[in-house]
Simulated scan of single mutants.
Amino acid sequence: METVGIALLGVGTIGSAVLRMIREERERIAERTGLFLDVRWGLARHRERVVQAGLSERAATTSIEPILADPSVQVVVEVLGGEEPAAAYMKRALEAGKHVVTANKEALSKHFAELVAAAREHQRALLFEASVGAGIPLMVSLRQLLTTNRLHRIRGIVNGTTNFILTLMAEEGVPYQEALRQAQELGYAEPDPTADVEGYDAAYKLSILASLAAGRHIRPEVVERRGITTVTPDQILDARTRGGAMKLLAEAELADETWRLRVRPVFVPASDLLAHVRLNLNAIELTGDRVGTIVLYGPGAGPSPTASAVIADVLDAVRFGPALLPNLEPAT
């Protein structure tokens, strides 16, 4: 039995869920994999938050330094969110010889090539299944597809918050602000919902997916982005009358060797599978030259699905190391 030392950067909703799931499942995981997961450190702005999450005072830190200096830490799990200090912490962890697992789409989409290069230089894993689609096995599917396919289209619903809001507006006639309030009460939307409703979150996720398909870093700034705040009740009603639905779609398409990335609310007819994706669920279409179009569907948000993906990545990081790193050139 091998013990895997883990440092958890962030003990908020997702970090606490990861810690809780490790405690509940570690015996079963050990039986199945021969790996015993042991969370050695928890990092937060205040040590009290780490203790409240269930770790000891000795395991609590407000600094990355003791984590980087601890040889018993094999995997750093980054669930801080936001660009910084998350991106800097991930790079330093890789340079210190730690595997890195992240659920952070913003930091990854903005620093993807840099982080992959650091992981490759130091022969460490960088895994990010939970960054797009939470519990949907999207990255593992992409890795498999890209071995034999050239992807030329990515299309889907990748933001559960906006899909929830649009579903309530369409099916129950709920006004936008009330639908947003309900999303916030259920924990689907942040107190400041800008990243979701203005399409930034979807743009970060699309950037990651398109970068993997292209084999080079496509930065989120190049995504043509429009959120759902411009969607009117008349548009919602018209879509429903026509048998379809308004959806915030993330689309990346390859034409003449150039990728075009767009996030925007559009009418989706009833004949399209994406029209029937409700509430906070996600669905992503991947189209390759050999396999055709496949659709991946499931919970795209939430603490439990995200924690499940994070822990699976921790196990893969230890078992496979840098073997799962994508080929990714810097942005041009």
Rank of each mutant, 00 (worst) to 15 (best):
R49L: 11
V50W: 15
V51F: 03
V51R: 15
Q52H: 13
L55P: 02
S56H: 12
S56Y: 13
E57Y: 03
E57D: 14
R58D: 15
A59I: 13
A60N: 07
T61M: 14
S63N: 12
S63W: 09
S63A: 14
E65M: 01
P66V: 09
I67N: 06
L68M: 10
L68D: 09
A69Q: 12
D70W: 09
D70E: 12
D70K: 11
P71K: 14
S72K: 14
S72W: 13
V73D: 01
Q74F: 11
V75I: 11
V76N: 06
E78N: 15
V79C: 13
L80Q: 08
G82Q: 09
G82M: 04
G82K: 05
E83A: 08
E84P: 05
A86S: 14
A87C: 06
A87T: 09
R92L: 12
A93C: 11
A93R: 04
L94M: 09
L94R: 00
A96M: 07
A96Y: 08
G97T: 08
V100L: 08
V101A: 09
N104K: 06
K105Q: 11
E106Y: 00
A107G: 09
L108D: 01
L108N: 05
S109Q: 09
S109Y: 14
H111V: 03
F112K: 02
A113M: 10
V116H: 01
V116C: 10
V116N: 03
A117Q: 14
R120I: 08
E121C: 10
H122V: 04
Q123E: 15
Q123F: 00
R124D: 03
R124I: 11
L126V: 07
F128W: 07
F128Q: 03
E129K: 04
S131L: 08
S131A: 15
G133A: 10
A134S: 14
A134F: 00
G135E: 04
G135V: 01
I136R: 03
V140K: 07
S141R: 00
S141Q: 05
L142T: 02
R143A: 13
Q144K: 13
L146Y: 01
L146G: 01
L146A: 05
L146T: 01
T147N: 03
T148F: 06
T148Y: 07
N149I: 11
N149M: 09
R150G: 11
L151R: 06
R153T: 11
I154G: 01
R155P: 02
R155A: 04
G156N: 00
V158N: 04
V158Q: 02
N159H: 12
G160T: 05
G160A: 06
T162I: 10
N163H: 00
N163L: 10
I165N: 00
L166H: 01
L166S: 05
M169N: 09
A170D: 10
E171F: 12
